[in-house]
Amino acid sequence: MKPVRTTARAMLGAIFVVSGVRIVLNPDSKVEAAKRVTDRVGPMLERVDPRLPSDARTLVRLKAGTDLIAGLLLATGRFTRPAAAVLAANLVPTTVAGHPFWTMSGPERAQHEGHFLKNLGLLGGLLLAAADTQGKPGIGYRTSHAVERSQRSMRRAVRTARREAKIARRSAAAARRLPG
Protein backbone atom coordinates (compact mmCIF):
# COMPACT_ATOMS: atom_id res chain seq x y z
CA MET A 1 0.00 0.00 0.00
CA LYS A 2 2.96 2.35 0.55
CA PRO A 3 3.61 2.93 -3.19
CA VAL A 4 -0.07 3.81 -3.67
CA ARG A 5 -0.02 6.25 -0.74
CA THR A 6 3.23 7.82 -1.92
CA THR A 7 1.97 8.27 -5.47
CA ALA A 8 -1.44 9.56 -4.36
CA ARG A 9 0.12 12.10 -1.99
CA ALA A 10 2.49 13.32 -4.72
CA MET A 11 -0.39 13.66 -7.17
CA LEU A 12 -2.58 15.44 -4.64
CA GLY A 13 0.19 17.78 -3.50
CA ALA A 14 1.27 18.65 -7.06
CA ILE A 15 -1.80 20.75 -7.84
CA PHE A 16 -1.16 22.91 -4.77
CA VAL A 17 2.55 23.29 -5.54
CA VAL A 18 1.96 24.35 -9.15
CA SER A 19 -0.94 26.62 -8.25
CA GLY A 20 0.98 28.09 -5.30
CA VAL A 21 4.00 28.96 -7.46
CA ARG A 22 1.82 30.58 -10.14
CA ILE A 23 -0.08 32.68 -7.63
CA VAL A 24 2.99 33.72 -5.60
CA LEU A 25 4.53 34.99 -8.85
CA ASN A 26 1.29 36.63 -10.06
CA PRO A 27 -1.10 37.25 -7.13
CA ASP A 28 -3.09 39.86 -9.07
CA SER A 29 -4.75 37.11 -11.12
CA LYS A 30 -6.65 35.96 -8.01
CA VAL A 31 -7.08 39.19 -6.03
CA GLU A 32 -10.48 40.10 -7.48
CA ALA A 33 -11.99 36.69 -6.70
CA ALA A 34 -10.34 36.63 -3.27
CA LYS A 35 -11.93 39.93 -2.29
CA ARG A 36 -15.20 38.08 -1.64
CA VAL A 37 -13.45 36.50 1.35
CA THR A 38 -10.69 38.98 2.20
CA ASP A 39 -13.11 41.90 2.50
CA ARG A 40 -14.74 40.02 5.38
CA VAL A 41 -11.57 38.57 6.90
CA GLY A 42 -9.41 41.71 6.61
CA PRO A 43 -11.25 43.79 9.24
CA MET A 44 -11.18 40.83 11.65
CA LEU A 45 -7.42 40.51 11.19
CA GLU A 46 -6.98 44.22 11.85
CA ARG A 47 -8.93 43.90 15.11
CA VAL A 48 -6.82 40.93 16.19
CA ASP A 49 -3.53 42.67 15.47
CA PRO A 50 -3.14 45.85 13.38
CA ARG A 51 0.30 44.62 12.24
CA LEU A 52 -1.21 41.62 10.43
CA PRO A 53 -1.64 42.08 6.69
CA SER A 54 -5.25 42.57 5.69
CA ASP A 55 -5.09 43.64 2.05
CA ALA A 56 -6.30 41.13 -0.51
CA ARG A 57 -3.04 40.94 -2.51
CA THR A 58 -0.89 40.10 0.52
CA LEU A 59 -3.42 37.58 1.83
CA VAL A 60 -3.58 35.90 -1.59
CA ARG A 61 0.21 35.68 -1.67
CA LEU A 62 0.37 34.30 1.90
CA LYS A 63 -2.27 31.69 1.10
CA ALA A 64 -0.43 30.69 -2.07
CA GLY A 65 2.85 30.39 -0.15
CA THR A 66 1.13 28.24 2.45
CA ASP A 67 -0.33 26.04 -0.30
CA LEU A 68 3.09 25.75 -1.91
CA ILE A 69 4.83 24.69 1.30
CA ALA A 70 2.05 22.36 2.48
CA GLY A 71 1.79 20.87 -1.02
CA LEU A 72 5.54 20.16 -1.02
CA LEU A 73 5.31 18.58 2.42
CA LEU A 74 2.39 16.39 1.35
CA ALA A 75 4.04 15.41 -1.94
CA THR A 76 7.34 14.49 -0.27
CA GLY A 77 5.73 12.55 2.58
CA ARG A 78 6.83 14.92 5.35
CA PHE A 79 4.26 15.95 7.98
CA THR A 80 1.60 14.62 5.63
CA ARG A 81 -1.33 14.75 8.03
CA PRO A 82 -0.82 18.38 9.17
CA ALA A 83 0.01 19.44 5.60
CA ALA A 84 -3.19 17.86 4.29
CA ALA A 85 -5.20 19.51 7.06
CA VAL A 86 -3.74 22.94 6.21
CA LEU A 87 -4.47 22.43 2.52
CA ALA A 88 -8.03 21.33 3.32
CA ALA A 89 -8.60 24.40 5.49
CA ASN A 90 -7.18 26.67 2.76
CA LEU A 91 -9.28 25.04 0.06
CA VAL A 92 -12.61 25.99 1.64
CA PRO A 93 -12.35 29.80 1.24
CA THR A 94 -10.70 29.34 -2.17
CA THR A 95 -13.63 27.26 -3.37
CA VAL A 96 -16.26 29.59 -1.98
CA ALA A 97 -14.56 32.74 -3.29
CA GLY A 98 -13.39 31.34 -6.61
CA HIS A 99 -16.40 29.35 -7.74
CA PRO A 100 -19.69 30.86 -6.52
CA PHE A 101 -21.74 29.09 -9.18
CA TRP A 102 -24.94 29.78 -7.23
CA THR A 103 -24.69 33.46 -8.20
CA MET A 104 -24.30 32.77 -11.93
CA SER A 105 -26.37 31.53 -14.85
CA GLY A 106 -25.82 29.87 -18.21
CA PRO A 107 -22.57 28.26 -19.32
CA GLU A 108 -20.58 30.24 -16.75
CA ARG A 109 -22.61 28.59 -13.99
CA ALA A 110 -21.90 25.10 -15.35
CA GLN A 111 -18.17 25.84 -15.61
CA HIS A 112 -17.92 27.16 -12.05
CA GLU A 113 -20.09 24.35 -10.73
CA GLY A 114 -17.66 21.85 -12.28
CA HIS A 115 -14.69 23.59 -10.65
CA PHE A 116 -16.56 23.75 -7.35
CA LEU A 117 -17.23 19.99 -7.48
CA LYS A 118 -13.60 19.32 -8.47
CA ASN A 119 -12.48 21.25 -5.41
CA LEU A 120 -14.89 19.24 -3.27
CA GLY A 121 -13.23 16.10 -4.61
CA LEU A 122 -9.81 17.52 -3.73
CA LEU A 123 -11.14 18.39 -0.29
CA GLY A 124 -12.28 14.79 0.15
CA GLY A 125 -8.83 13.52 -0.82
CA LEU A 126 -7.17 15.95 1.58
CA LEU A 127 -9.45 14.88 4.42
CA LEU A 128 -8.53 11.24 3.73
CA ALA A 129 -4.85 12.16 3.71
CA ALA A 130 -5.25 14.14 6.94
CA ALA A 131 -6.87 11.12 8.61
CA ASP A 132 -4.54 8.50 7.12
CA THR A 133 -2.37 6.85 9.74
CA GLN A 134 -0.56 4.77 7.09
CA GLY A 135 -1.79 1.54 8.59
CA LYS A 136 -0.55 2.42 12.05
CA PRO A 137 -2.95 2.93 14.92
CA GLY A 138 -4.05 6.53 15.34
CA ILE A 139 -3.50 8.55 18.49
CA GLY A 140 -7.05 7.91 19.72
CA TYR A 141 -6.58 4.15 19.45
CA ARG A 142 -3.13 4.24 21.06
CA THR A 143 -4.36 6.45 23.89
CA SER A 144 -7.37 4.30 24.71
CA HIS A 145 -5.30 1.13 24.59
CA ALA A 146 -2.57 2.68 26.74
CA VAL A 147 -5.24 3.50 29.34
CA GLU A 148 -6.58 -0.06 29.17
CA ARG A 149 -3.05 -1.49 29.58
CA SER A 150 -2.46 0.81 32.56
CA GLN A 151 -5.72 -0.28 34.17
CA ARG A 152 -4.87 -3.98 33.66
CA SER A 153 -1.43 -3.36 35.08
CA MET A 154 -2.90 -1.62 38.14
CA ARG A 155 -5.41 -4.45 38.73
CA ARG A 156 -2.57 -6.97 38.48
CA ALA A 157 -0.44 -4.94 40.91
CA VAL A 158 -3.35 -4.71 43.38
CA ARG A 159 -3.96 -8.48 43.19
CA THR A 160 -0.27 -9.15 43.70
CA ALA A 161 -0.11 -6.74 46.65
CA ARG A 162 -3.17 -8.38 48.26
CA ARG A 163 -1.70 -11.84 47.75
CA GLU A 164 1.63 -10.76 49.25
CA ALA A 165 -0.13 -9.05 52.18
CA LYS A 166 -2.12 -12.23 52.83
CA ILE A 167 1.06 -14.30 52.77
CA ALA A 168 2.76 -11.79 55.10
CA ARG A 169 -0.21 -11.92 57.54
CA ARG A 170 -0.08 -15.72 57.57
CA SER A 171 3.66 -15.66 58.10
CA ALA A 172 3.32 -13.14 60.92
CA ALA A 173 0.52 -15.18 62.57
CA ALA A 174 2.58 -18.35 62.26
CA ALA A 175 5.59 -16.59 63.74
CA ARG A 176 3.52 -15.43 66.73
CA ARG A 177 2.36 -19.01 67.38
CA LEU A 178 5.88 -20.38 67.48
CA PRO A 179 7.37 -20.75 70.92
CA GLY A 180 9.96 -18.17 71.29
Rank of each mutant, 00 (worst) to 15 (best):
R149F: 07
A64L: 03
L120C: 15
M1T: 13
Q134V: 09
P107K: 11
S171L: 14
N26H: 13
G71E: 00
K30M: 12
R170T: 13
V41Y: 11
L59N: 01
R9H: 15
G125M: 01
T160L: 14
F101A: 03
S54T: 05
A172V: 12
P82N: 04
A83N: 04
H145D: 08
A110H: 10
A172H: 14
V4Q: 13
V37P: 07
E113R: 14
Q151H: 13
A70L: 01
L128C: 09
G180I: 13
V24S: 01
L123Y: 08
R109L: 10
A131H: 11
R40F: 11
G65K: 02
F16M: 04
V21E: 00
I23N: 09
F116I: 00
V48H: 06
T160E: 11
R47D: 08
R51M: 08
T66E: 04
R61M: 08
N119T: 07
I69N: 03
V31N: 01
S171G: 15
T133W: 07
K63T: 12
A8T: 11
A34I: 01
R155A: 13
V24G: 03
P179W: 06
L68F: 05
T103D: 15
K30W: 09
R155K: 15
P107I: 06
S153P: 08
A84L: 01
V31W: 06
V18R: 12
L52A: 04
S150N: 12
A97L: 07
I139K: 10
L74S: 03
G65T: 03
G125N: 02
P3I: 05
G98D: 01
N26L: 04
S29I: 13
A8Y: 11
A172F: 12
A175L: 06
L123S: 00
R9L: 11
L73K: 03
Q134W: 10
T133L: 04
S105N: 10
A56F: 02
E113M: 15
G124N: 05
T38M: 00
A174F: 00
H112V: 02
